[in-house]
Structure formats: structure tokens, C-alpha cells
Design a protein around this nucleic acid. Structure first.
Lengths: 187, 187
DNA sequence: ATATTGACAAGATATTAATAATTGTCAATT
DNA sequence: AATTGACAATTATTAATATCTTGTCAATAT
């Protein structure tokens, strides 16, 4: 029972991820998701209360997956700069690439959706966690959360000036380098 | 003749600035501008080839004014950090405040307008000029223009997370501090 | 019983055609 | 020589209509 229900839900989220990623929030219907998942529309409503819940589940799943990926990768790296650089390039260019491939998917990064806002909050936490020790050790007066916020939303601004993914990563690298150098207490 | 023509043009740009600032690009008509300037619509077309030329003139004038203001202010300040901080707070919160007062004025910051793009390029130049010497002295491998670009578009990203002008300036201060500390060669 | 769906009302969104407003121009007027 | 009224072309607005979509639930199937 519980098992079957979980699996059905996972199937639906998987299907929803595909269609939301391609067509964005506005241009995908519950019918599209249900069809892709091989179930009827009312069956989908048995699993999720409404469309936004499906959307939130998709966003959350993508986010968790990305975080697992990032955490695994940076565990194998040494030093704040290398870790932060990888995390930011990976996280930051993800959205860029997706939108380049499917313009409608820009919805998935619209901060008006609470689920999307949470993605940004989560990444801000990841960054803050990474830099916290070094910020404290260097005796910097700015809270790690604020530094992280500047980096994360700074990266968001970069999207408007970068012409392609490669340039995006280049600019992200500069932002990260600025942050790390600024808290590298002249070591 | 030339004198009279220049004065008429200035009058028109002055009028256009008022109405574009309040209603944005889309919601102001050439009729609005002409009326505000106390001339007929065809008379306005004698001064400017089309609407976008008027818009560009408005943007350029605002930009030049802001730059004069900034240059005058930072001439009286000492040190890169103080100069850059003032420049960025002044430039960055200008747009924020205008949009808060008149939501339609968001047009004036739409990067799809070439005139607006130029505003960003100009401020990038100002920043690059300010930091150039210190970047070279510190032997940093990143070109000043790229660092400046990251700061300018980083600031743009901050707009999406700041709730008010005060917070915006706080975050700008962090960005600026990050940049300056990162090129302060442990002096 | 439980799981599933067809069919529905309410609301949102797209379509269309008709109307109005705006732009850029130029011959006519001052 | 400077200015404008009036025009064609384009673009935006409106209103009426049709279509789609959402979320629900009684009816059906398992």
C-alpha cells in the first residue's frame, strides 16, 4: 500500500519533471503530466492536491538531486575555493543550460514561486555553511549568510550579461574568487 | 538659430524625462512628450527622428548627470573602498528608488533597449577605471573590465533579493567590500 | 471496500473582429 | 522658414465568443 503509493508518486514526479522542464509552469497542464505518467488526471489529483504541489515536488526533487550531486563532488575536493567554485558553477550553470535548451523552462527559476525561492534559500545555506568557518576565523564582521546571499543573487545577475554557458561559468568563477579572496585572511 | 534649436531640444528632453520616468517607455506617447514640452507632435519629430531617439536622449542625459554627480562626490573621497562604495550605492540605488516610486519606470532599466545597455557599459567603465591601478599593482590575473562586469551585474541581481533601498545599499556594500578586499593585496 | 475515472461547474485563457490610438510623414498653412 | 493638420500604416485595446484547464465528486469498475 504505502509502497505502491510512494512509487506512483515518484512516477508522477518523474513524468512531471520531464514536461515541466520542457514547457515550463504556464504551458504544461495537469493533463500533460497525467498522460506522461500513464494515469488519468483525477488519479493525479489523488496524489497531489493541486498543480502547484506537483510543481513544487518537481522543483524540490531537482534541487535535492543537485545538492546531492554537489555535496558528493565537493567532498572529493580540497580547499574552500575549489569547493565553492565547483558548487557555484554546477548550480549556476544548471539553470542557464536548461533555459537555453527550453526557453519556456524559465518558469522553473521564477522567484515568485515559493518553491523556487526555497531553491535559492537552500543554495544560500550551502554556501554559508561552506564559508562559515573561514569567515569566523578571519574575524570578518559580515555574517556568512549575507555574504552567501550576495554571491547567490550576484550569480543571478550574471545571467543577464553572459551570452553562453561558458561565459557564465567564467563570470561565476570571478565572483567566487572575489568572495574567497576577500575572506582569505592574507593567509 | 543653433542656440534656439539646442534650447528647444533640451526642453523636449527635460519634458520627456519627466513623463518617461513616471510612465515608462511603453505607456508614454510622443503626444504626451510634446504636450509636456509645449509643442506639437510634428515639432517633436523635427527634433528627433523617432520615439526611441527621444528615449535614448532621456536615458543618456540621466546617465551623464548621474556620472557627473558620482565623479564629483568621489573626487572628495579617499581610498578605493570609499570611492567605489559611494559610486555603487549611488548608481545602484538610483534605479531601485525610481522603480519603487513609479513601477512603470522599470522600462528605463530594460537591457533590451540599446540605450539602457549603454548605461551599464558606462558604469562598468567607471568601475574598471577606479580599480585598474590597484588590480595591476596587486598582479591579479583577471582583467579590471571583467571584475567590473561582475560587480555591476552582481548588483543587478541583488535587486531581486532586496526588499527596500536600505537593504539594497547594505548588500551593495557587501559586494563592493568583497571586490575591494579581493584586490587589496594584503596591504 | 477500494481504486479509478467520466463528467461537470467555475474560472482562466485563447480567438476573433471591430474599434481606437499611436507612429511617422508630408503637403498645406502660418 | 517654422509649424501643424491631416493622413496611411501600424499597433494596441476592447468586447464578445469560444476553448481549455482546473479541481471535484458521484458513478463505475475491480
Amino acid at each position: 500500500m504505502a509502497r505502491s503509493s510512494i512509487s506512483k508518486e515518484a512516477l508522477a514526479v518523474e513524468a512531471a519533471t520531464e514536461v515541466f522542464s520542457r514547457y515550463g509552469h504556464a504551458r504544461t497542464t495537469m493533463g500533460d503530466v497525467a498522460a506522461k505518467a500513464g494515469m488519468s488526471r483525477p488519479a493525479l489529483y489523488l496524489l497531489f492536491p493541486d498543480k502547484d504541489a506537483v510543481f513544487a515536488a518537481v522543483i524540490q526533487r531537482m534541487d535535492e538531486q543537485k545538492h546531492r550531486e554537489i555535496r558528493a563532488a565537493i567532498a572529493r575536493l580540497d580547499g574552500l575555493h575549489a569547493k565553492l567554485l565547483h558548487a557555484c558553477k554546477s548550480w549556476g550553470s544548471h539553470g542557464f543550460d536548461l533555459i537555453e535548451a527550453h526557453p519556456d523552462s524559465a518558469d522553473l527559476f521564477d522567484l515568485r514561486f515559493p518553491a523556487v525561492r526555497k531553491v535559492y534559500d537552500n543554495f544560500q545555506c550551502l554556501v554559508a555553511d561552506l564559508i562559515r568557518d573561514q569567515v569566523k576565523a578571519a574575524g570578518i564582521a559580515i555574517e556568512p549568510e549575507v555574504l552567501a546571499r550576495c554571491l547567490v543573487f550576484g550569480m543571478r545577475g550574471l545571467r543577464e550579461t553572459a551570452r553562453n554557458g561558458k561565459e557564465m561559468r567564467r563570470l561565476i568563477a570571478v565572483q567566487v574568487t572575489m568572495l574567497v579572496r576577500s575572506i582569505d585572511d592574507g593567509s
